[in-house]
Amino acid sequence: MARLEKIGSDHFPMMFRLALADRPMESIDAGSADPAEQAHIERMIWEEKKRERTPIGSDWED
């Protein structure tokens, strides 16, 4: 993982190099969502999909 040189943007590009193992490697568990969190998130997504609005920041480049 490396931050690359600037390209005129306000963000640095990033480079990632990965290798795919043929089995799960030993690693720290990232945790898991409990049913309450899962339900809360799914409800938020459902409600957000119903909203009709213009994306935030669409006018920043004008």
């Binding site: 390209i7 005129g8 943007s9 590009p13 990033m14 480079m15 990632f16 990965l18 480049e61």
Partner: peptide
């Protein structure tokens, strides 16, 4: 088994295509 990926947010108003 390797993959390398370059991720860049170019910033739309930036026109320095050659840099990327």
């Amino acid at each position: 088994s390797h993959i390398s990926l370059l991720a860049a947010n170019v910033k739309q108003s930036n026109r320095d295509y050659d840099a990327l």
